[in-house]
Amino acid sequence: MARKILVLGETKENELRNVSFEAIAAAHKAAEGGEVVGVLFGEGAASHAEAMIQHGADRVIVSEMDELKQYTTDAYMQAMEQVCEEEQAEGLVIGHTSSGKDLAPRLSRKLSSGLITDCVEIEGEGTNAQYIRPVYSGKAFEKIKMEDGFLFITIRPNNIPALEADSSRSGNIDTKTFTISNLRTIIKEVVKKSTGGIDLAEANIIVAGGRGVKSAEGFKPLEELAGVLGAAIGASRGACDADYCDYALQIGQTGKVVTPDLYIAAGISGAIQHLAGMSNSKVIVAINKDPEAPIFEVADYGIVGDLFDVIPALTEEFKKVTAS
């Protein structure tokens, strides 16, 4: 049965995040031919609405109200509640991002709905769809079905493929204002720790360093390799704890959870806390001096050796490939 599903898109540094497109694809599966309506808030929202339509949204609701410029729980709760009410939507898909994680459970309670967070795959369609999500730090998966009623899921970035952009698609873009009051939390400042460039959560290739890089300086060869590959740089908790890099780069249970196509782990032993953040990557390459390191158990390809020899050699080889 066709049903109307909303997708809350998300921008970061004035770019629409990929997960917004992936959420549209997910919404189409749940909608079973029903309407998929994009929702986008904040500065420049209207200018990104077209991209949501090209990727499969049938129309988009935008708001550039000052109160929605930055994500805050109270403002987004009130705006989304009004959108859900006006649209009489039968479902909502949000990215499992920092703001998505903050908003979804609270909004779900408001809507008296169930919620399935962190979905990585959808099996079947419409009301029969089942949602697959990792549990036990990625060591297992569960398959969940939503009972009748409002369908509400958050999806992990980089897992559910987005639809191909189609520039011939068109749809309405409606600008709305909402009643927003009583904002209890004020954002004073955002201290940027991430390096900019490629977003770790959405990167296709990640080059990550662990304690084996030995110093902040030791990340240099990794950065060179990442430059050649167009990859993002990540790190294990060990490297962050040792102050070789900022916590913004941390991948793991307590850092970011990533699922790139290619994950190159250099000098990372592979503690469970790290594996939880990356073991579902499509292809894993491990480079470590210790042949017994647990990282080799999850690796598709392993090189036992000193990363300071192996990484520069790899950089040279990749240069040859990318040049040809």
Binding site: S113, G114, L115, I116, Q130, V135, G138, K139, A140, F141, E142, K143, I144, K145, M146, E147, G149, S279, N280, I284, A286, P291, F296, E297, V298, A299, D300, Y301, G302, I303, V304
Partner: peptide, 21 residues
């Protein structure tokens, strides 16, 4: 009562042993 039901739990597909070069 619950609004979601877990219908199955499973382990990730067994990865063949990685290739050590």
């Amino acid at each position: 009562a619950a609004k979601t039901t877990t219908t199955d739990r499973f382990l990730p597909p067994e990865k063949g042993a990685g290739k050590i070069l």
